[in-house]
Nucleic acid binder design. Structure first.
Lengths: 252, 252
DNA sequence: GAAAATTTGTTCGTATGTATC
DNA sequence: CGATACATACGAACAAATTTT
């Protein structure tokens, strides 16, 4: 039977902190947002206003605003006409939270790469199905730009990253875009600057092939090639010497 | 004793708020965590301690702690022996942040379902490759439990959700697990309570087939069936009448 | 461009509720 | 039960930054 709940009887220290006045304010604002009572850009008010509105001290309001800000729900501006506003959507906070959780959970690079395969594989698939003419033009342009920086490891890596991002954007799925951006933020520092000239040429060739599949709307081929592309990155990343594996590619 | 390393406002492009003393404390703790100087459970100290360490007021420390807490980096306990500790990993905040960002970005249910396809498709694939004997036992157990609640829409939906989660857990990939948990939190309220008896039976059949593929380590079949399974959910969710689509399944 | 108004950032002091020993 | 330690919360005040006038 399911005795899983007996294994970890934690989470008993919640009551006092969960019912704090500051958290009650946080919950109220959050509920209002999800109930459609707020839209991005709407003004919540200044700390002074909110303190009067909720009949609490300014410091309590600050606690609540700090939490809401970190959640990405509000943005705070100082000066006249400033105050707390409903955010437009700030992916930085989310990316940071993702990175933190992966760190705390001890998620390995390999696990992250498998997640990346899931995201980018589906992204390539949907890109092939949904790409617009503008998407194709941007992808083509990025391919051209990468061609000019094949000898600069850092520049080519950056161009490759942009190409991958453009593919995800071509999928038209903002959830995937958000995930990819967050993921790139997490894995970027480790995987940077690994491209040699030979590796760059191989990557560029694969990128051209990806473009061809996406243009032809061959979603299954696009997905498979993207996954192979990423798996070969994994091979390079975990097999030690990168130069040995000529088929293995990249950094982007 | 060190201070907060007050940096000069030499970078004009950076907004003032990013250079606040509280945010500097946040960044220092965050950096320390990522540099391996902290492990989950480590004690940071009380507000008073930290105020003395950073040579700032308690309220400034409070601001920083509130941010760190919302990021999921620390957990705070009141009373003697309390204070701020490095968290074990709190997915609730992350899930909430994900839901908030999707809401603010106006991400649609369809987009979220495509992301779910990416996560769960890869999850099923990896589960077939990596499942342990314990995983199979738990999956089998969950199938049996679901069998007993086929007539209760809510209970069966819950059992189905647990089965899906168990598959992801069988993948052994904590990044996928975190993503799935967060995603479930986002989509759960809308998709709940849609199961009829007929739909439940169809879902149960598919779940049994998924188990068979995972046991046989047929990763490609597991992935494809999972995707079909989820796509049919999408069909039900977006085509209005669910009963018409006999092949379409579920709520879980 | 300068002054004024507004708002956040920061500090100190104090009181209270709560958890641990 | 009492003592201790800690977070929560309040009020007043000044500094710093930004927008408006």
């Amino acid at each position: 039977m399911g005795n899983a709940e007996l294994t970890k009887p934690n989470q008993s220290w919640a009551p006092v902190r969960a019912n704090s006045v500051a958290n009650q304010i946080v919950m109220q604002v959050r509920e209002a947002l999800f109930n459609g009572k707020f839209q991005p850009g709407d003004l919540l008010g200044s700390e002074k206003d909110l303190a009067a509105q909720f009949d609490v001290s300014r410091i309590t309001v600050r606690d609540a605003l700090r939490t809401l800000e970190t959640m990405g729900i509000i943005e705070i501006r100082v000066g006249a006409g400033g105050g707390a506003r409903i955010a437009e959507g700030n992916l930085d906070y989310f990316s940071d939270a993702l990175a933190v959780q992966f760190k705390l959970a001890g998620v390995t690079e390999r696990e992250i790469l498998d997640l990346q395969v899931a995201i980018e594989g589906t992204g390539a698939e949907l890109a092939a199905l949904n790409r617009s003419r503008e998407n194709l033009e941007e992808l083509s342009e990025l391919l051209g730009e990468a061609e000019n920086v094949m000898d600069s490891s850092a520049d080519f890596t950056d161009a490759g990253q942009q190409f991958h991002l453009a593919i995800i954007e071509a999928s038209g799925n903002r959830a995937l875009i958000a995930q990819f951006r967050a993921l790139r933020y997490v894995v970027w520092p480790q995987n940077a600057q690994r491209a040699t000239r030979e590796i760059a040429e191989n990557a560029q060739k694969i990128h051209h092939q990806l473009y061809a599949y996406i243009e032809a709307q061959d979603s299954e081929a696009a997905r498979k090639l993207m996954i192979d592309h990423l798996v070969s990155i994994r091979a390079v990343a975990f097999s030690g010497t990168a130069a040995d594996d000529a088929t293995g590619v990249i950094c982007c």
